[in-house]
Structure formats: C-alpha cells, structure tokens
Write a protein that binds this DNA or RNA. Sequence first.
DNA 1: CTTTTTGCAAAACCTTTGCACAACC
DNA 2: GGTTGTGCAAAGGTTTTGCAAAAAG
Lengths: 125, 125
Amino acid sequence: MRYSRQRELITDIIKNRCDHPTADMIYGSAREMEPNISLGTVYRNLKLLADEKEIITLETEDKKIHYDGDTSRHSHFICSKCGNIIDLFKPAKTPAEIEELGLSITGEKCIYYGLCNLCANETIE
Amino acid sequence: MRYSRQRELITDIIKNRCDHPTADMIYGSAREMEPNISLGTVYRNLKLLADEKEIITLETEDKKIHYDGDTSRHSHFICSKCGNIIDLFKPAKTPAEIEELGLSITGEKCIYYGLCNLCANETIE
DNA sequence: CTTTTTGCAAAACCTTTGCACAACC
DNA sequence: GGTTGTGCAAAGGTTTTGCAAAAAG
C-alpha cells in the first residue's frame, strides 16, 4: 500500500478520537485539514483500513457504519436514548461488572466470527 | 395494533425459519402465499415487529438487516467464509464452550444496550 | 364510518464505482 | 514512467415514505 496524505489524515482522525465516528463525521473532520478531500476517498480508505484490520467497524441500528480506531479486544455499550457509543475496555466485563459502572443493560447483541464447521472442513479452498 | 393478514404471514415466516432472513428474503417467501404483497409492507411490518420486540434485528457486515424470530437471549456466530449465521443458544456460551462446538472464533463484536449515565440521570424526559 | 394498513412508485439515504488526472516511488 | 490513489459525479442497493384505495373493527 502506497503512502497517501489523505489516508494518513483519515487514520489519524480515527485513532485520535474516543467516539465512534461515521464516514460522514470523518469526512467533516478531514475537510478541516484537507478541504478538497472527497467523500469517495474517505469511504475507499475506511474500507482499506478495515480490510487491513487497522480499524474496526461497528454495524449499529442507525444503519450507518461506525469506525473504531481501537483494535484491542473490547466491547461496546450503546445508549438507547442518545445513541452514544461507549467503549467497554478489556479485560472483558461480565454484565454484572458493566452494571457496576452505572450502566444498566437492557439488551445485548453478541456476534462471534470464524469459520463454520462446513467451511472449516472444506479441503478445496 | 390492528390485525392484518400480511403481518401475520410475515410473523409466521420469521418465526418458522431457523435462518436469519433479510427483508428481501422474507418478501420472496411472503409472495409465495400472498403474491400481491409489496416490499413496502414487508419493511413496514418488520419495523413494527422489531419495535414491539417480537423479533430481533441483526446488523451485519453485509449491510442488510437480518431478522431473527427467536427473541430469547442468545448470541450469534457468523462464518467469515460463507456468511452463514448460526444461533448460539443459551445458556450463554463462553468462547471456550463455543470452540468446543467445533467453531473457531477469530473475532467478536459485542454490543450492550441500555441507558448511559447521562441519560439515566436526566430528571426531565 | 373512522382509522389503520396496504400497494405502488418515487424518494431518501448511505455507500460504491468509473473515469480522467494527480501523486507516489 | 508505471502504478496506485484521488476528486468528482453518477450509479447502486437497501430502506423509507406519500398517497389513494382497501381492509379492519
């Protein structure tokens, strides 16, 4: 992957925020430094960075992809009222430990990734 | 909420499948019974049912919403290769227990829902 | 009869993409 | 110089919505 000023800027923006911005929010920030940057470039680089696992994507109920520059293993808490996304840092918290933080859990969505039995046993790629 | 033949059909379809269909797949099934049903009706009812917590939504990386008629507390496993979504039934499994099922976990996304501290402490609605 | 729900089609929305030009190495 | 990345604008795909007609109670 070749260097590009735009990609470095986008990476910096994501890594230096503690919220979980959408592509549009990142575009807004990026334009402050790089007024001519285009939305397409932002999307292209976000996809690249996610593919390279330099950033994490969060698919939420607002139907926009949120990005997280922290790739360490941690989970998230989304406020049902304001929609704010809060990091739940490792070590992994149990529901009880999360509630001790003052967050009352009303629901959860946990998705694990990997290969299913069928795909894992396929000999031909 | 008033009765409608279409909503009952949609609910039946979701409750009687063990996969996690998208709106489009549900639309396809529904048309077999109700050839004139429209996509808009499917979307409207899916949103209604999700609001009423009769079904669950799953926001995945394929950018389509998947629906789950099983509202019991359970998590999901998505195969990174074929995209198949597998239910991980309760009692809640630890990563170790999931791997005993033959599923190798390479990643996870866990989102908890509730009210954040700010919203929980607001006196005025 | 009044209100809710539907079908249809258009609109809205986020994201992706084709292309010519610029930037990188 | 050859290749990769960008800007722009148009296209793509999923979901939402306005409206008149139909269904429900």
